[in-house]
Design a protein around this nucleic acid. Structure first.
Length: 425
RNA sequence: GCCCCGAUAGUGUAGUGGCCUAUCAUACGAGUCUGUCGAGCUCGUGACACGGGUUCAAAUCCCGUUCGGGGCGCCA
C-alpha cells in the first residue's frame, strides 16, 4: 500500500512503499541515491551495488523525472532530512524522455514563456506547487466562510446575451443561430438572485475579458470570487470583505507553514484595520505628491503607483464619482457613488458597491451610460416587482494570491494563463 | 489598440563588422569514483528565429515577417 513521501517519517524501521518522480539520481561506484518526489515532498532512496548488481546497473542510466515505485526499509541515516529508504524493490512505471524541455530541479531559472509552454513540468517544482496549494486554501477558506454565514452558493450562466457592464470587450460565442458572449462577470445574475429572495449568495467561477491588455496583472480568463447580500449597504459589505480577507490569510498561516517556508514568505496574518479613503481624499493625496489630477478624473496607473505604491497594505477607496462606476452602482449624491475598490498598494483587488435597487434609477443610469434598457430587460424586470436594497463585491482570486505571496506576475498565480497570445496549454 | 525592447545548443547565457572553426554554466551521452545530497573528476554531442538587403567580410548593420518581454490605456 503506497504512502505519501511526507509520511515516511511516521514509519521508521518498517517497510514502506512510495511512488513518484525520480528528480535526481546520484551514482557512485558502489552506491546510488534516488531522490524521489511526490506531492508531499521528497525522500532519498539508497541502493548498494553489492547484492543488487542488475538493478544497480539499470538505475544508473534511468532518466530524471521517470515515474517509479519503491519498496524498502525506512531508516534513520546521515541523509540531510535524517532518514532515507533502503531500496529492496523498485518498479519503473514510466520512463521520462531526455533531455527534459525544462529542468525541474535545475539551478537555472527558465523564462516564464518556457515554463508556461511546459507547465506540467514547471508545476512539478515544489515552489510552484506551493503557490497552488495556498490558492486552494484561500478559495476554500472563503467558501467555508460564506457557507458558515448562511450564504447560498450559486452557479450563474457563463454564456450570456448582453454585456454586463458596457465597458469591457467580450468574447463572442456562436450560439446556434444567435450571437452570444462569454460572461465577463456574474454581476447581473447575482443581483437577480437578490430579487429572487436568496438573501445572500456567492459564486466562485471564471470571468472572461476580451481586452487586449499586456500587463503583469491582467489575464483574459480569471477566477472571480463574487458575493451579493440583501438589506445591507456598502459599508456592511466592506466589513465582510475585510473579514473574508483576514480569514483567508489566517487560514493560509494556519495550514500552509511548509509552503510559505518553501516560498520564503513570512506569516501573512493581517493585524491592522483596512483604511477607508474616499476617492476625493485620494485625489488630494495625489495632488500633494505633485500630480496634476482633478476631482472626477480616473485614477491612472501613475496615480495608483505614486500614492498607493508606498502603502504596503490593504485599503479601500470609497465614494467614487458616479461617472467612473457602472450603471448598477447606487448614487450617494449628485456627483459621487456608493462604489468602492479594495486596493493593496497600487493593485486593485476587489471592486464592489451598494447597488441600485430602484428600477427608475436603474433605467436612468443605463440611459446616462448610453446603454439601451431594452437590451437589459431580463435584468431590469427583476427590479420591477420587489428588489431589496443590496450590495456586493468580487475578488480576483489570482490577484489576491499575488498579494499574499508577494508575486508580481499574475501568470505565476494562474495554472494555465490565458493572455493576449496564449491559448495553450 | 498605442509606445519601447528583445530573439544564440534541451535550459539559461557571453558576444558591439574580421581574433567565431561562437563563450560559460547546466542538461544530455560515455567513462571514473565506497554515502552522496547543487556529488566530484575526465572526455564527448549539441545553437546564431525566418526571409531579404548592405559589405571583400554579418550572430553583430538595415528592412520585413513571426514569436516573446516591458510600459500605457482598461480592469479583478
Amino acid at each position: 500500500m503506497r504512502i505519501l513521501i511526507g509520511k515516511v517519517k511516521d514509519h521508521m524501521d518498517s517497510e514502506v512503499e512510495i511512488s513518484g518522480w525520480a528528480q535526481n539520481i546520484r551514482v557512485m561506484s558502489s552506491v546510488l541515491f534516488i531522490e524521489l518526489r511526490d506531492v508531499s515532498g521528497t525522500v532519498q532512496g539508497v541502493l548498494l551495488r553489492k547484492g543488487n548488481e542488475e538493478l544497480f546497473n539499470d538505475l544508473k542510466t534511468i532518466p530524471r523525472e521517470t515515474v517509479m515505485s519503491i519498496k524498502g526499509l525506512a531508516v534513520k541515516s546521515q541523509a540531510k532530512i535524517g532518514y532515507e529508504v533502503q531500496i529492496n524493490h523498485l518498479d519503473i512505471l514510466n520512463k521520462a524522455e531526455t533531455p527534459l524541455p525544462l529542468g525541474v530541479v535545475d539551478r537555472i531559472d527558465s523564462d516564464i514563456e518556457t515554463r508556461l509552454e511546459n507547465r506540467f513540468l514547471d508545476l512539478r517544482r515544489p515552489e510552484i506547487l506551493s503557490i497552488f496549494k495556498i490558492q486552494s486554501t484561500i478559495s476554500n477558506a472563503i467558501r467555508n466562510y460564506f457557507v458558515q454565514k448562511g450564504f447560498i452558493e450559486i452557479h450563474s450562466p457563463k454564456i450570456v446575451a448582453a454585456a454586463t457592464e458596457g465597458g469591457t470587450e467580450l468574447f463572442p460565442v456562436k450560439y446556434f443561430e444567435r450571437n452570444a458572449y462569454l460572461s465577463q462577470s456574474p454581476q447581473l445574475y447575482k443581483e437577480i438572485m437578490m430579487s429572487a429572495g436568496f438573501d445572500k449568495v456567492f459564486e466562485v467561477a471564471p470571468a472572461f475579458r476580451a481586452e487586449e491588455h499586456n500587463t503583469p496583472r491582467h489575464i483574459n480568463e480569471f477566477t472571480s470570487l463574487d458575493m451579493e447580500m440583501s438589506f445591507v449597504d456598502d459599508n456592511d459589505v466592506m466589513d465582510v470583505l475585510e473579514e473574508v480577507i483576514k480569514t483567508a490569510f489566517r487560514s493560509v498561516a494556519d495550514s500552509n507553514q511548509r509552503e510559505l517556508e518553501i516560498l520564503g514568505v513570512s506569516n501573512p496574518t493581517i493585524d491592522y484595520k483596512f483604511r477607508r479613503i474616499t476617492y476625493s481624499e485620494y485625489v488630494k493625496m495625489a495632488n500633494e505628491k505633485g500630480i496634476d489630477l482633478k476631482d472626477g478624473e480616473d485614477l491612472s496607473t501613475l496615480v495608483l503607483k505614486t500614492v498607493g505604491g508606498g502603502m504596503n497594505e490593504f485599503y479601500f477607496i470609497t465614494r467614487w464619482p458616479r461617472a467612473l462606476k457602472p450603471f448598477y452602482v447606487q448614487p450617494h449624491d449628485e456627483q459621487y457613488s456608493r462604489g468602492f475598490d479594495l486596493q493593496f498598494g497600487e493593485l486593485e483587488i476587489t471592486s464592489g458597491a451598494q447597488r441600485v435597487h430602484s428600477p427608475e434609477v436603474l433605467v436612468n443610469n443605463l440611459k446616462a451610460k448610453g446603454l439601451n434598457p431594452e437590451s437589459f430587460a431580463f435584468y431590469v424586470n427583476a427590479f420591477r416587482y420587489g428588489m431589496p436594497p443590496h450590495a456586493g463585491w468580487a475578488i480576483g482570486l489570482e490577484r489576491l494570491t499575488m498579494v499574499l505571496l508577494n508575486i508580481s506576475n499574475i501568470r505565476e498565480t494562474t495554472l494555465f494563463p490565458r493572455d493576449r497570445t496564449r491559448v495553450t496549454p
